[in-house]
């Protein structure tokens, strides 16, 4: 009788393996994401500036300062305008592109690739191209506008237009993403619904859209809006290389302010407080998305 000693039963071996396999990722997740996220919250309650030997608990002082900070409010307002302009445009154009591309037979692959290419390209390099395209005299945009008899401007240097010019770049970049997500949503609609609709006597494009596509696309729509909004909130690259927040703070956005305060002026604690605002806004979008999807689920 040779009894097996020192080995574990299959159940305990499985539990041990599970823990060991999850451990490296779990540790990294705490070190790189969750831990720092908690640290940001704590840091925002101190008065610490980068490199200082002393650290003092400051309560809500940073938030109080933020409340009175004109630049912060400009930054928040600009961010909200940027999101408010680029999200509807991205979602609407993405939806139209998806429906149009799904409805045409040939060239489908080409259209999809063309509209998606900006998503897969380096935004920073393309931002520099856009800078050239927005050039007041030789820029492509003004040349086209002039040819069409539309007003022209020095888009990126004019405080009234700079934010919208950046939003246009954002729409251009994210449109393809919204499009492929909508295309996936469209594919999930069972074709017999359209057939049933045709049998019921409604087969026009508008009827098809209103009675089947739109209601069936609901969850996808909520998701696309949320993901586009979250991405828009993160606008930074174009601001950093094209306008640096200017002219006269007209393109100052939250992440740019955060980097300025936290890394340029080395005001770590204040930067952390701005980060918290940024985090809360992002979480609010996710929360709104969850609530909306839940309601729809009960409704449907």
């Amino acid at each position: 009788m040779a009894e097996a000693k020192g080995t574990l039963g299959p159940r305990r071996a499985e539990a041990l393996a599970g823990t060991l396999l999850a451990l490296p990722a779990f540790i990294l997740m705490w070190l790189m994401l969750l831990g720092p996220a908690v640290a940001v919250g704590l840091l925002s309650l101190t008065d610490w500036n980068f490199g200082e030997p002393q650290i003092r608990f400051a309560g809500l002082e940073n938030y109080a300062e933020m409340w009175g900070d004109r630049v912060f409010w400009i930054s928040l307002r600009n961010t909200v305008i940027y999101v408010g302009v680029s999200v509807p445009a991205t979602v609407l154009l993405g939806l139209l592109a998806a429906i149009a591309i799904e409805s045409v037979g040939p060239l489908k692959g080409f259209y999809r690739a063309a509209y998606f290419l900006p998503v897969a390209s380096t935004l920073l390099a393309m931002a520099l191209v856009w800078e050239f395209m927005f050039h007041p005299s030789v820029g492509f945009v003004n040349q086209v506008f002039r040819a069409l008899g539309l007003p022209t401007a020095d888009w990126l240097q004019n405080p009234d237009t700079a934010l919208f010019a950046l939003a246009a770049i954002g729409v251009w970049q994210n449109l393809g993403l919204a499009m492929v997500l909508f295309m996936a949503g469209l594919k999930a609609i069972p074709p017999d619904l359209y057939e049933a609709l045709a049998m019921d006597g409604a087969d026009g494009a508008w009827e098809r859209f209103r009675r089947v596509t739109w209601p069936m696309l609901g969850p996808a729509l909520v998701f696309v809006v949320a993901i586009t909004a979250i991405r828009s909130f993160q606008v930074f690259d174009t601001v950093q290389v094209l306008t640096e927040g200017g002219p006269s703070k007209s393109t100052e956005v939250l992440l740019f302010t955060m980097v300025q305060q936290g890394f340029t002026f080395l005001r770590s604690a204040y930067g952390a407080a701005i980060t918290m605002v940024f985090l809360l806004l992002t979480l609010a979008i996710t929360l709104a998305q969850t609530v909306l999807l839940d309601r729809r689920a009960h409704y449907g």
Binding site: P36, A37, I230, L255, L283
Partner: peptide, 14 residues
Amino acid sequence: ALLIPPQVPAIPLY
């Protein structure tokens, strides 16, 4: 962790 935007941990990581 999926809900945390990648820019949030930047200051502590730095």
